[in-house]
Every structure is written in structure tokens, then in C-alpha cells.
């Protein structure tokens, strides 16, 4: 489904951000992307989405990620940004959810029907006509996820979906992620959330993938995590005590 083959990216010649990354993600997998600050997680996601240039080959559903194919690739990928304020730029939640659908040629009537359907699934109907600047951070994050889900992407990519959420909203986001049947790629420092939502984990360090394995294999490996400036998830550490 998603394949990286020897992918490089750097902002300048001296600092390589992605250093020869290769991996495959199969359809339906739920992959956690972890690593310390500056490990290259966000850059990797942006390269996949065609927001940053790259050397090497990336393909999504067999479609090569390049300028000519970006529209096609982006129909397959849905990206939830770390900062929901940057994602929700239209006046109301409804406007925001319809934005992408109409851009891809759906009529306003059909788009609104789709919006209703998604909001109902996520139990967010009350947000539909609310103004984005008047909803809370947690609601905005849920609305941002709904915005992406409305486009029915085959892959959902999330950058730090639980950051700056209170426990209640964090739990709500985790529950939503677990209900999604699509392929998921979640970049996060919240290892407890990764533990709950992902079946596979890739650990990045210095722009390279240093470990790939099942969630249990990676997130229970204290030595590996500490070598890469991370800690055991709180849930596991507490159970070990």
C-alpha cells in the first residue's frame, strides 16, 4: 500500500533529515511512528504527502509520489495536522468538512449528506454549525479528524493526535482511532496511546529507522527506547513496578 524505497530528504547539505528510509506498510495496518524530537517523524509524513521534496521512491497504492500525481495520492491520504487551528480554517465546522469534498467535485448537497453521516458516526452532530473559533481544543481536534474522515481516505495519517488534550478528550480520540478501519499512521510521543492504537511500531532516530516490530516488541524494550531518548510507556512501566 505504502512503500518507501531509500528515501532521503534534507533542508541543506549538512543536515540530513531523512537518511535512506525504506519500509512497507500493508493495507489495514496501524503503524505508530515514534522517535525523539528531530528524529524525522513529521518530515517523513510531509514527504509522504508530497509537502516536502525527496530523493528516492515513494509509492502509495502503486502511484508514485511526484508532482504530477499529487492530487491522486492526496485523495488516498488523509492528514490530521498537529495543530488543529491550522487545519480548521473555515468559519464553521460544516464549511471545513465540506471544503475538501467540494474541491474533489462533490455537489454541496451530497457533501452535506456525507458530513452528517460522519458527524453522526463520531457523535459530533452538535458541532456541525458551530464556529471554529468558538469550540474547545478537544472539540476542534475531533472536528479536524472528522474533516479528514469525511473525505473517506484509505490511509489516515495523524501527527501527534493526542497532544495538548485533556484525559477525557484524549480518550475520545483514542476511541475514534480504534474504530477506524482504514490504514493508519500515527506519529506521536504519547507511547501509551501508540500502545492502545497501533499494531506495529517504527522507531526513528537521526532520520533513520532503527527498529520496526510489533507494538509489544518495541514498546516493551526499555534498552532500545532509552538508547533513543525515549521511555517505557507509563502503563508498562507501572505494571513492571
Amino acid at each position: 500500500m505504502i512503500e518507501f524505497n531509500n528515501v532521503y530528504f534534507s533542508y541543506d547539505k549538512e543536515h540530513t533529515v531523512l537518511d535512506g528510509i525504506s519500509f512497507k506498510i500493508e493495507k489495514g495496518e496501524s503503524v505508530g511512528l515514534i522517535g525523539a524530537n528531530g528524529a524525522g517523524k513529521s518530515s517523513m509524513l510531509k514527504v509522504l504527502l508530497g509537502l516536502l521534496p525527496h530523493d528516492g521512491e515513494i509509492s502509495v497504492n502503486g502511484i508514485k509520489v511526484c508532482k504530477q500525481n499529487l492530487a491522486e495520492v492526496r485523495r488516498v491520504l488523509g492528514f490530521v495536522l498537529q495543530n488543529s487551528d491550522n487545519q480548521m480554517f473555515m468559519p464553521t465546522v460544516l464549511d471545513d468538512m465540506m471544503f475538501g469534498l467540494c474541491n474533489y467535485g462533490m455537489s454541496k448537497k451530497d457533501a452535506e449528506a456525507r458530513v452528517d453521516e460522519v458527524l453522526e458516526q463520531l457523535d459530533l452532530v452538535s458541532l456541525k454549525n458551530k464556529y471554529n473559533h468558538k469550540i474547545s481544543g478537544g472539540e476542534k481536534r475531533m472536528a479536524a479528524i472528522a474533516t479528514v474522515l469525511a473525505m473517506q481516505p484509505e490511509v489516515i495519517i495523524m501527527d501527534e493526535p493526542s497532544v495538548s488534550l485533556d484525559p477525557y478528550n484524549r480518550r475520545a480520540v483514542i476511541n475514534v482511532i480504534n474504530r477506524l478501519e482504514q490504514t493508519k499512521i500515527i506519529a506521536s510521543h504519547d507511547l501509551d496511546m501508540i500502545m492502545e492504537t497501533c499494531t506495529k511500531v517504527m522507531l526513528l532516530s537521526g532520520g533513520r529507522i532503527v527498529a520496526v516490530g510489533t507494538t509489544d516488541e518495541i514498546l516493551r524494550n526499555k534498552k532500545l527506547l532509552e538508547e533513543n531518548r525515549m521511555e517505557l510507556p507509563f502503563g508498562i512501566a507501572a505494571a513492571d513496578r
Binding site: F89, L101, Y104, K108
Partner: peptide
């Protein structure tokens, strides 16, 4: 930085300079 993120978010949802969504 923020403006670039916002514009990325628009492009990722099919915005190509035309106002189809506000048709």
C-alpha cells in the same frame, strides 16, 4: 510557519487555486 501549515492543509484537501468549494 503557521501560514505554510494552513496552506498545506488546504492543498491536502484538493485546493488548487479555484474556489470550487464555494461554487
Amino acid at each position: 510557519d503557521r501560514a505554510e501549515e494552513l496552506y498545506s492543509s488546504m492543498r491536502l484537501r484538493g485546493f488548487n487555486g479555484e474556489f470550487i468549494y464555494a461554487s
